[in-house]
């Protein structure tokens, strides 16, 4: 990998995948069929994975594909199909015009507020030309792209990491208990 930076090429792809992500997200929230919605959401996640890579977070991009698009969304699809919800049913899933307009207004409000806050609170901008010398080295010979993430994760945030693993364990146990078919002993 050479470190030559092509601003136009980079910018073009950044915008491209960004727009695809937005378009896919809009399609995602407007689909009636849960399966279609899930597929469009997976598309958003792929786009985001591309952007992660472009932002020099290759490891996160890989995990995004593996864990999110691969594992979590598959679970979603699995549940949708398990419950046989594949077809848009008669009951209108999307709310009426009033709530939709209200939701749009609220969304715009949040958008505006977040924009204002981000603009006023986050100082600094990195120049695209200097991107390669930034805090996160794109790749180094010994640790590759994983070491910059793994370092803090297993040093400063080790406790949080372990707690998260316990959380996962608890979630697995909980999911099994909740999802288990209730036997005659539990039936009331």
């Amino acid at each position: 990998m050479d470190n030559t930076f092509h601003p136009l090429f980079y910018g073009f792809h950044f915008y491209l995948f960004g727009l695809i992500a937005i378009a896919s997200a809009i399609l995602f929230v407007t689909r009636k069929s849960p399966v279609a919605a899930a597929l469009w959401l997976i598309n958003v996640m792929f786009c985001l994975a591309v952007l992660y890579v472009m932002l020099d977070a290759q490891f996160i991009g890989a995990i995004q594909v593996l864990v999110y698009a691969g594992a979590i969304m598959v679970v979603f699809l699995f549940v949708v199909m398990l419950l046989n919800l594949g077809q848009p049913d008669d009951l209108a899933d999307i709310r009426g015009t009033g709530p939709r307009l209200a939701a749009g207004a609220v969304g715009l409000a949040i958008l505006a507020e977040v924009m204002v806050l981000a603009r006023s609170r986050i100082q600094g901008e990195y120049a695209p030309a200097a991107a390669v010398e930034l805090l996160v080295p794109a790749a180094d010979a010994v640790g590759g792209v994983i070491a910059p993430v793994a370092g803090p994760l297993f040093r400063e945030h080790l406790l949080a990491f372990e707690l998260t693993s316990i959380l996962l364990l608890a979630a697995i146990v909980g999911a099994v208990v909740i999802g288990k078919k209730q036997g005659p002993a539990d039936a009331r």
Partner: peptide, 13 residues
């Protein structure tokens, strides 16, 4: 929840 978040964010903004 969302309306609350909007108003809190508005307060900050």
């Amino acid at each position: 929840l969302v309306l609350g978040a909007v108003s809190v964010l508005a307060g900050f903004s």
